[in-house]
Amino acid sequence: MCVDQDNLNMLKEIIGDDLKEVLDAFLSTSPSLLEQIERSIASEDAAGVQLHSHTLKGSSANIGATELPNLCLELESAAKNGVVTPEFSPMLAKIKAETMNVTAALEDFLKTF
């Protein structure tokens, strides 16, 4: 599973309806972060790739995503050398695909509120 359901259920018990805001924030900001990563790769801005993949890593970890934080960390780490390489595009493709999976899982979870 791309999102730790037990973690989401625990958060729902602890923070209740406020969890909706947290999940909605992820759902509304992740497309922009993906776009910023893509633009940074296109403009060969390694610092931008690092920053935006770091931000997506943190927000996805906060909502209990299981694979997405690791994929973002991989891209973030690769960007630390300051050079955008051809391998960044396939890495971003994996991040985009997993973000779609996480989004679908969160949208289903939100239906339980």
Results as ranks from 00 to 15, higher is better:
2 C>H: 05
24 D>S: 13
59 S>T: 13
101 N>C: 15
100 M>Y: 11
48 G>K: 09
18 D>Y: 12
104 A>I: 11
45 D>H: 13
111 K>V: 12
56 L>K: 04
6 D>K: 10
9 N>K: 14
24 D>G: 08
72 C>R: 02
24 D>R: 10
88 F>P: 01
4 D>T: 07
107 E>A: 11
38 E>T: 03
3 V>Y: 01
67 E>Q: 14
28 S>M: 00
110 L>R: 09
30 S>D: 08
103 T>L: 11
84 V>T: 03
47 A>Q: 10
75 L>C: 06
61 A>D: 00
17 D>V: 08
29 T>F: 06
44 E>V: 11
38 E>G: 05
75 L>W: 01
7 N>E: 09
27 L>N: 09
80 K>N: 12
24 D>Q: 14
102 V>L: 08
40 S>W: 03
52 H>E: 09
100 M>R: 13
20 K>F: 11
27 L>E: 15
108 D>A: 15
56 L>A: 04
6 D>P: 06
77 S>K: 02
91 M>A: 12
21 E>H: 15
113 F>P: 12
47 A>K: 10
92 L>V: 04
83 V>E: 10
55 T>L: 10
106 L>A: 07
26 F>R: 02
28 S>G: 00
14 I>Q: 05
31 P>N: 04
112 T>K: 02
59 S>I: 14
67 E>P: 07
65 A>L: 04
101 N>F: 13
39 R>S: 04
61 A>W: 01
96 K>E: 01
13 E>D: 15
59 S>P: 06
77 S>D: 04
105 A>V: 06
58 G>K: 01
30 S>V: 05
39 R>K: 13
80 K>A: 10
7 N>K: 09
48 G>Q: 07
32 S>C: 06
108 D>W: 12
60 S>W: 01
109 F>I: 06
20 K>V: 13
69 P>Q: 06
85 T>C: 07
73 L>E: 00
3 V>W: 05
76 E>Q: 14
60 S>C: 02
7 N>S: 13
21 E>P: 02
57 K>L: 08
68 L>K: 01
16 G>T: 12
30 S>Q: 12
104 A>Y: 09
96 K>R: 12
33 L>M: 07
70 N>Q: 12
101 N>T: 15
97 A>C: 11
50 Q>G: 07
93 A>N: 02
29 T>S: 11
63 I>S: 02
97 A>F: 13
28 S>Y: 00
57 K>S: 06
48 G>Y: 07
49 V>Y: 04
83 V>T: 02
55 T>S: 09
75 L>N: 04
33 L>Q: 01
64 G>A: 07
83 V>C: 11
72 C>T: 06
99 T>W: 00
